[in-house]
Design a protein around this nucleic acid. Sequence first.
DNA 1: TTTCCTTAGTGATTTCTGTCACAGTTTAGG
DNA 2: CCTAAACTGTGACAGAAATCACTAAGGAAA
Lengths: 209, 209
Amino acid sequence: MNDSEELQKIFPKFDAKLAAFVASISERKTFYEGEIMMKTGQYFKAAMLIISGKVKLYRESDDGSEFFMYFLEGGNACALSMICATRNQASEIMATAVEETEVLMIPIRYMDELMTQHKGWYYFVLETYRSRFEELLVVIDNIAFKNMDERLEWYLKQQAAKLGKQLSLTHQQIANDLSSSREVISRLLKKMEKNQMVVLHRNSIEVLI
Amino acid sequence: MNDSEELQKIFPKFDAKLAAFVASISERKTFYEGEIMMKTGQYFKAAMLIISGKVKLYRESDDGSEFFMYFLEGGNACALSMICATRNQASEIMATAVEETEVLMIPIRYMDELMTQHKGWYYFVLETYRSRFEELLVVIDNIAFKNMDERLEWYLKQQAAKLGKQLSLTHQQIANDLSSSREVISRLLKKMEKNQMVVLHRNSIEVLI
DNA sequence: TTTCCTTAGTGATTTCTGTCACAGTTTAGG
DNA sequence: CCTAAACTGTGACAGAAATCACTAAGGAAA
């Protein structure tokens, strides 16, 4: 069912034995564009590894406003799903598929065996934590030290890097991701357009930087 | 040199065998109040576990302003030192001892053995990651969704919980931790004093909430 | 085609925060 | 004891961002 050679290509840290083992114990699941993959308060029965597609991770506040944190794509794993799965704890963040996304679900009960029997696995887990942690630090830098214009610029660069220069986003969506307001984003985007950093269309933005 | 029973008391996840092993391979080191334990850009040769004392972890921006993230105390470990040590990477945050702090240094070369031979160790590592990750999420919530008055209130509660109701802090230090300015903090503190949430003294604040 | 809803643009106003200026008070060090 | 430095309190002002109010344009559906 799962092809272990394909897994090795997507997860370079997996050796043949590990890939074969993971392939034998995991299940594939497909999420469709826009589908919610993970909700605040949800419990996990499995760790999730992304095979293909893109996932948006964000935080939700009590009053419903959100805040974009980072993307996951093929070869990544959801750090929280691994921790929460191992410790059987509730999730603290939201995840939605931004495009059709295929994931590998590894049931909790194999976590001990993976961790102790496969060196490649725990290197993979450590790498996952480290990179998510670092992304969070960058997020903190941005909201703690930068103004909205710089944050917007960084946000657009980041989105363009992952999703392409032609972004299908409304100003309202961007405002949500940055937890700002639509008018502020509209004004800043206009300014960026004057500075030849973007071209604005209805429902989409072309990033030139 | 290291007493493995003492270690088990401080790190409840360690079984006798693990505690004895850790005791045999680690070295103790003492940092004095105010001493910098870890700098941005520094490389690790060891993972650091806190035996006693308190450590303040914070982020530094390019222009030198800082931003408080969280404390570590006895029984905790520095998540970044463990990741960076294993992967031989540079640190991204700053750490200073807020009081005399004793730490256990575990050389990198034992990481593989610990991880694969000791179940208690990787549970401990996972727990460390999860709790630091969650603390970062709370930090993000605060700066993303809250105003300075709420952030200050949260900050004071947090400090009081770790360091006691009587805080030896100047307004300037608080402003640095929250990456704000002294005047703003002074004014908000005055307001909190009117609302009987704190009592202000020179060089110290009594937290009543 | 006409209507309606979503998206976008923009001025006016307000709130929050940061900055400047300065005064008063306490503490440390010579 | 005296002076300088550090800490605190406050008014005035500036700038960023949020909010309100409205207009206009584009696209979808009737």
